[in-house]
Design a protein around this nucleic acid. Structure first.
Lengths: 353, 353
DNA sequence: ACAGCTACCGTAAGCGTTTACGATGCTATA
DNA sequence: TATAGCATCGTAAACGCTTACGGTAGCTGT
C-alpha cells in the first residue's frame, strides 16, 4: 500500500480524512490534522501529482514555450531567464508552478505545442516569439486552453497579449535622429516572420513619411540576433552610393559589430554614424560610446505576464476579473552617446569609401 | 463521456482496444487500428497525460532544474538554451520530453526541487549549478529518483555526473602563461559555493606549486558573472604593490570589464597584461585583442546529458546498459591574442599607477 | 426528552488511462 | 473431425487522489 492509503492505515483513519487534512479543508479536527501532517513528514509522503491532476482536473502548472531555434544558437540573451523569474513570483502566490517548454531548434512550432497543450499537461500556457500569423493562437483557442502571448499575431483576435511598445520606441528614436538632422536612416529588422518585425518596419516607414523622407529599401536589412549581423550590415552600407548617417538596430547586440566595422573603416560610431538599439542587453553596457537604447525591466514584464495568464484561468476569476488583456509594455529611452552627434561638417565623408 | 471512452463508444469497440490501437500495441487488427486513428484525428482526441502517468507509473518527462538566481540577473548567457537543445534531441528519440524547472531567484534550491521531484512529476531530473556540498544529490538519492548532474557535489558519491574539465583547462592555461614568462598570475573564482570554483582554485594552486610560484591570496578574487566584475578586479589589482602580469577569468565575460579598466589606465590587454578566459561566450567573440579561452560545444554537451539521464531510468537499461556515468567533458583551447605577449621590457610599469 | 445543529469522519464513486487475463472465432494441423 | 494455436478483442481492476454525500455523536435550547 502506498501514498495516502498507507498514511491512512498507519493512522487508523480514512483516506478521505487524510486528504482533507493535507489539503487544509475545513471539515477536519485540529488534532487529527496535526497527526496527519506529522505522519506525512515522518514517512516523507508527498502526493502524486498525476493522481491529483486526474482527480481535480487541473495540473497547477503553466507552461512557457520558448523557441530554441531563435534563442539558442544566437548570441547572448538573458531575456527569458529574467522574464521567468517575474512570472514565477506571481504564480507561486497562487499555488501555481511555472514549467518551461523549450521547443527544439529543428522542431515545428505548432506540433510541438500541440503535443503538450492538448494532453492537459498545463492549466495554461504562455507563448513567445510570436509570428505575424501565428497558428498557435488558433490551436489554443480551438482547444479552449487558457493562454497569453508575449507579442501578437496579426491574424488573430480575441486573445490576451502583452507586447513591447516598439511603436513609441520607434517614434522616439526617429524624432531624435531627425531632430539631429539625419535624413538617411538605415534599419535592421528581424529575419523571420516575427510580428514585431512588421510593427518595427511599418512604424519606421510611417515616421519617414511624417518627416517627408523618402523610403529607400536599400537601407533595410533583415538580420538574425547576432553581433556579426551588425558588422555585415555596415559592411554593405559602406558600399552604398549615398550611405546613411544613422542606423536603427532591432537587435541591440548588433551594435557591437556595427562599432567594429565602422572603426575598421576609420569611422567613429556616434560621430560618423548614429546608432540606436532597441532594448538594452547587459552585454552592450560596456560599449563606448554608450549605446542609446530602450530599457525594459524584465521582472516587471514577467509579473504582468504571470497575472495575465492567471486571469485566463477560470478558477482565478475572482482575483483577476478582467481576462481581456491587451497591454503595450513601454520601454524607456536610455540616452547614450551613440547618437549624440549630428551629421556635421567634421563628419568624415563615408560615401567615398 | 470523454476521452477514450467516447472514442470507444463511437466506434462500437472497447476502451481497451482503443488504447491498444493508439499505443501501437500488437494485439489489434490493422483495420481497427486505422479506424481508431482516423476517429481520433477527426474529433481531435489527445490522451490525458495525468491519466496516463497514473496508470503507467511514469510521466515521460525529465526535468531540468536551472537556478535563476545565478542566471537571470547576471549578464548574458545562452549556455542553457544551447544545452537544452542538445538534451531534447536525444530525449525525443526515446519518446521523452524535456521540461525546465526555473528555480526563482528568491527560492531555496532544495525545497524547490523537493516539491517537484517527490511528486512524481518527472521520471528523472537534470541538475546544474552544482555546489560543493549540494544537498539536492542526497534528496534525489533518498527518494530514489533517477538523475544526472551537470557538475559535481564534492560531498557525495555514487551518482551520475558530467563535469567540465576545468582541471586540464587550468593546467593548459598555466602552462601557456608560465611558458611566456609570467610569474604573477591573478585569478577570479566564482562567488558562491560552487564546486567548480573549488576545482578551479585548487588546480590553480597546484600549478603554482608545480612551477615553484608562491601562492598570493591577494591575487584571488571572488566574482559574480558580470562583465563589471572584471572591471572592479583590475581596478583593485592596479593598486597592488606588485601587480600581476596575467589574469585568469573563470567567467569569460569579465574580460570585457578587464579590457576596459586596463585601457582606462593606459594599458593594453594582451600586452601589458595577459588575459585568459574559461569557456567561450558568443558575447566576447568581438573582443580586440581576441580572447584566449576554451571552447565548449553546447549541443554535444547537451546530448551527453540526455543520454546520461536516460541511462538512469530503469526501463532504458537495454539501450543504455551502463548507468555509471562520470564524464569529464573536455574544453578545447582557442588561442587568441590576449596572452600572446610575454611580460617584456616594453611593458608599461603598471605598479606605479 | 426531543428536534435541530454542528463538528467530524467514513464511504465510495469518480478522474481517464493502461494492461493482465480471459473469451471468442478462425485457421491449420494431425 | 478434434484440437491446438493464433489473432483479436472485451472485461475489469488498478493507478493515487479528491470530494459529494451521508452518518454518528455530542451539544443546544425548549
Amino acid at each position: 500500500m502506498r501514498g495516502i492509503a498507507r498514511l491512512a492505515k498507519e493512522l487508523g483513519i480514512s483516506t478521505g480524512t487524510v486528504s482533507r487534512a493535507l489539503n487544509g479543508k475545513p471539515d477536519v479536527n485540529a488534532d487529527t490534522r496535526q497527526r496527519v501532517l506529522d505522519a506525512a513528514r515522518r514517512i516523507g509522503y508527498a502526493p502524486n501529482q498525476a493522481a491529483r491532476s486526474l482527480a481535480q482536473g487541473q495540473t497547477s502548472a503553466v507552461g512557457f514555450m520558448v523557441d530554441l531555434e531563435r534563442e539558442s544558437a544566437t548570441s547572448s540573451d538573458n531575456f527569458f531567464m529574467g522574464v521567468f523569474d517575474g512570472v514565477q513570483s506571481v504564480l507561486t502566490e497562487f499555488g501555481m508552478d511555472l514549467l518551461v517548454m523549450p521547443c527544439p531548434s529543428g522542431q515545428d512550432h505548432y506540433s510541438y505545442l500541440e503535443r503538450f497543450a492538448t494532453r492537459g499537461v498545463f492549466d495554461a500556457v504562455i507563448l513567445a516569439s510570436m509570428q505575424y500569423n501565428d497558428r498557435r493562437v488558433g490551436l489554443l483557442q480551438a482547444a479552449n486552453i487558457p493562454f497569453v502571448a508575449l507579442g501578437r499575431s496579426s491574424m488573430h483576435s480575441d486573445y490576451a497579449w502583452i507586447d513591447l511598445d516598439f511603436v513609441t520606441s520607434m517614434v522616439t528614436a526617429m524624432e531624435r535622429l531627425v531632430g539631429l538632422g539625419h535624413r538617411r536612416i538605415a534599419i535592421t529588422c528581424p529575419k523571420g516572420d516575427f510580428n514585431f518585425g512588421h510593427i518595427f518596419l511599418d512604424t519606421y516607414k510611417q515616421e519617414l513619411a511624417r518627416y517627408n523622407i523618402s523610403y529607400d529599401e536599400n537601407l533595410v536589412y533583415y538580420v538574425s540576433r547576432t553581433e556579426v549581423s551588425g558588422y555585415d550590415v555596415v559592411d554593405d552600407l559602406l558600399k552604398n552610393d549615398d550611405p546613411p548617417t544613422a542606423i536603427l538596430l532591432i537587435y541591440e547586440l548588433a551594435a557591437i559589430g556595427v562599432y567594429r566595422r565602422l572603426r575598421e573603416a576609420g569611422l567613429e560610431p556616434g560621430k560618423d554614424m548614429a546608432v540606436i538599439g532597441f532594448r538594452d542587453d547587459p552585454a552592450i553596457q560596456f560599449l563606448e560610446p554608450s549605446l542609446t537604447c530602450f530599457e525594459l525591466e524584465l521582472g516587471g514584464l514577467g509579473r504582468k505576464l504571470g497575472e495575465a495568464v492567471l486571469a485566463q484561468i477560470p478558477r482565478f476569476q475572482n482575483h483577476f476579473p478582467d481576462s481581456h488583456i491587451e497591454i503595450i509594455q513601454p520601454m524607456e529611452l536610455r540616452p547614450g552617446d551613440s547618437d549624440a552627434f549630428p551629421p556635421g561638417i567634421d563628419q568624415k565623408i563615408i560615401r567615398s569609401s
